[in-house]
Structure formats: C-alpha cells, structure tokens
Design a binder for these strands. Sequence first.
DNA 1: GCGACAG
DNA 2: ATCTTGTCGC
Length: 325
Amino acid sequence: MAAKVATRPPAETLSLWKREQARLKAFVVDRDTEAWQRDPAFSGLQRVGGVDVSFVKGDSVGACASLVVLSYPELEVVYEDCRMVSLTAPYVSGFLAFREVSFMVDAVRRLREKEPHLVPQAGALQLTGTFPWLFQVLFVDGNGVLHHRGFGVACHLGVLTDLPCIGVAKKLLQVDGLENSTLHKEKIRLLRAGGDSFPLMGGSGTVLGMALRSHDHSTKPLYVSVGHKMSLEAAVRLTHGCCRFRIPEPVRQADIRSRGYIHRTLGIGGTPAPGRERSRKAPRPRAGPEGVSEELAGKDRPPEAHSQGPRTHRRAPGPDAQGQG
DNA sequence: GCGACAG
DNA sequence: ATCTTGTCGC
C-alpha cells in the first residue's frame, strides 16, 4: 500500500528548517583541507564515495538510500550499501536535505562502524596517517553552497559527517540572480571539451559554483558547487576526473544500484511481486553492504555504450579544467 | 495569473 | 524524483 507523507510543511516548519540551515552553515569550510586536494594528480586519493536516494513509484514514503565507494582513479565499485527507508518529509525546493540527508548520514555511519572489517589488503590501501576513511570525499546528488541560503544538501551532509563533500546538480538552481538565460545557454555552447567550465556568479558577486562539461560527448553541463572541506577548483577538477559519462561515477553508481535494489525488492512499479524475487535467474537475493565481492566490483556495463567511442583519450584531470571566465 | 521548481 | 519504448551507433 502506497503510504502518503505529509504534504507541504507549514510555514512554521520551514522557518525552523531555515534556522537550522543558518545555524549549520557557519560550520561549512569552503577550502581544501586535505593534501591530495591540492595535488595536481590527486595523489593520495584512493577512494571516492557517492550517495543517492531513489524512490518507489506511486509511493511517497518508500525509497532506497544507497552509498557506494569507488576506487580512484579506476572508478570501480568496491563497496555498496542499499537500504529501504521510509521518507518522512516531502520534497520542498531549498529543503532537500530535510527529506534525504538523515538516511545518507546513517549510511556513512554504517560504513564507519564496519570499516575495520573492510579494510582490505594492507598494501593496497596506503592511507597515510590512517584514520582510514574508506572514502575521502563524497559526491552528493544536489547542490552545495549554490543554494537559496547557501546551504544545500551537500553542505548539510558535509557538516553532519565532517567529510569533504561535492555538490553535483543536473539542473541549474536559479537562485541569487542566476538564471537559465540565453546568455547562460550561450556560455554552455562555448564549452567545447570535457573539463571546460565557467563560473556561476551570484548577484552578490560571489562565485557560487561552476557549470562543467563533464566529458567530451556531453552537451548538458553539470552544476558543481562546494559542499564541505574542499575548494571549488578542486571540486570541479575532481568531478571531471570521476566522469566516465555525464554523471560522476560515484553518484551514477549509487543511483543505478539504489534503483536496482528497489526493482529487485519490490518488483516493477510499486507492487511487491513475490514471484519475481526468486524466479529470476539470480539465486542471490540480496547484495548487502557486506559485498566487497568481485562480482559487485567490476561487473557492470554502462548503458551508454556509444559514449566511449572512437575518442580514446579522456582529458587528464589536470590543470586544464578552468575554462571560461 | 505567471513562472519557477536541486531531488 | 518516477516509467516506457524505440532507435541509433559501434
């Protein structure tokens, strides 16, 4: 049965949420805090994470939250955690975090708890200093400081977990004077190669984020903004370095896997199809967080097979990611 | 009434 | 955010 979640929150609630955003915003660090972030080749970066929440169609409560960890620079999945959750807050633009962020924090906490179990081959993972985060930066589906009040979900998650976070949105949030104008579209047209970008300046003269052409064969840009503990420049450069396709691989894998989990668990649509769960050829019912298995690791083929076409060389994620001004 | 609306 | 179907290119 498709349960329903509260409709639009009363103004009083939104007021509280705004206050909470303002309170937490003071903790955002919008500069590089880690050595690898300043390294031209991101030397020392070994693990990148991605989070996403997918929804059950026709059900405003049921969803799947997922966290994946990928190796860098190979971008192969080494960890996956999918979990069914019950949403309590509706989606309100500007308040996305209040709908999704708690599940993401939970997933991070689960990983941190079972992390000692997972640290694999001692040689393969040379995390110097080693309070060994299994991942060192988290990609978030949504904006960071590019937000109505400068505190999008990527900032929110960053502050709550104290982790470096990058906000990656697929559409421009038209805020602080930013608009999807003719001029904006023209700037997009001028992005020629993967890694090209231009700054998004708010009315106050501050650069809120960057529009990034994530790879050579992508026309629609990504909108990258600082979440936490990372400079915008490093965020853009790393985002480019994590794009096999338009969407950064950590977020893309989190999305694919959370949707797949829903599909396998509930069947097509929102109908709990009891027959489907087991009748499928895969006898293995679940792939839980435990999976650091090889089957989970490299076994998926990207849907967009043509994107990796004749052009063999990707741009090295080097100092070429600046683009227009 | 019109336009905007991260996910 | 969500689904579907077909089509194209390699």
